[in-house]
């Protein structure tokens, strides 16, 4: 996709999470990434105040998937006025769990020598799609049958990649695995599996009409409240 992009899970561009106005001059931009099986919060800190900033630290509130910093925030030198620094904070998913609204909401506290600042961000769920998420075919069929119809959610993605191969490859780079593929009456059907860091499995059926840029996505999950967020992540991956 983007220039110089490495192959891997899709990473959205950084956006401003803490505006300087609310951070007494501290501006924080960030995004979430999954690289080599690990989750990162990629951050940029900018000092827009007139004084030097130092003594940075970060903490998360309890959240739906137990996301927590896996190491202290490494900003080792003070940040002079108008200076920026980038830092990649490794995360794990063994923190305290509390169901958030929305499910992918994360409350963050950052402190420096001036004050403590709080902000909320939402993370795309595909950062939690694990590398061993390809379900065995037999297990897929049994699970698909076993999950009741009322746990199935249906969505549409417009502006999909133009072929089932392109869709499958793009999704696989973000750990959405194609378990089987069929063509029925000219429609391409992809059966896919996703496993989240907390062990929840998602089963997906993607249906594409040749020549149509849209794709019908059906999701089956034993925890159906996650399906809308899985769909958002799939849509984000397919459109980028």
């Amino acid at each position: 996709s983007g220039t110089g992009a490495i192959i891997g899970s899709y990473v959205a561009p950084k956006s401003v999470w803490l505006h300087a106005m609310k951070g007494k001059g501290l501006e924080i931009s960030g995004t979430f990434a999954r690289r080599s099986g690990a989750v990162f919060m990629d951050l940029q800190f900018t000092n827009r105040a007139l004084q030097v900033m130092s003594d940075f630290a970060i903490q998360f509130n309890r959240n739906s998937f137990g996301l927590a910093p896996a190491a202290p925030l490494q900003i080792l030198t003070p940040l002079a006025p108008n200076q920026s620094t980038e830092v990649s904070l490794p995360l794990n998913t063994v923190g305290s769990v509390m169901k958030m609204e929305p499910l992918n909401n994360l409350q963050v506290a950052v402190k420096n020598n001036i004050d403590v600042f709080y902000f909320s961000v939402v993370y795309p769920l595909h950062i939690l799609f694990v590398e061993d998420g390809k379900m065995e075919r037999q297990m897929f069929l049994a699970t698909w049958k076993d999950i009741p119809n009322e746990n199935e959610a249906q969505f549409q993605v417009r502006d999909c990649p133009p072929s089932p191969d392109a869709v499958s490859n793009k999704l696989q780079a973000s750990n959405v695995f194609t378990v089987a593929r069929r063509t029925v009456e000219g429609q391409d059907m992809l059966y896919q599996s996703i496993k989240l860091t907390n062990g929840i499995w998602l089963l997906a059926e993607l249906r594409m009409q040749p020549g149509s840029p849209s794709c019908a996505v059906s999701l089956k999950c034993r925890a159906p409240e996650v399906s809308p967020f899985i769909f958002q992540a799939i849509e984000m991956v397919l459109k980028n």
Partner: peptide
């Protein structure tokens, strides 16, 4: 390749979804 019946099972699933 061993025919384990799963190919056929996926075909039936896809057909049932297209023509419920």
């Amino acid at each position: 390749e061993l025919d384990d019946g799963l190919d056929e099972a996926f075909s039936r699933l896809a057909e049932s979804r297209t023509n419920p």
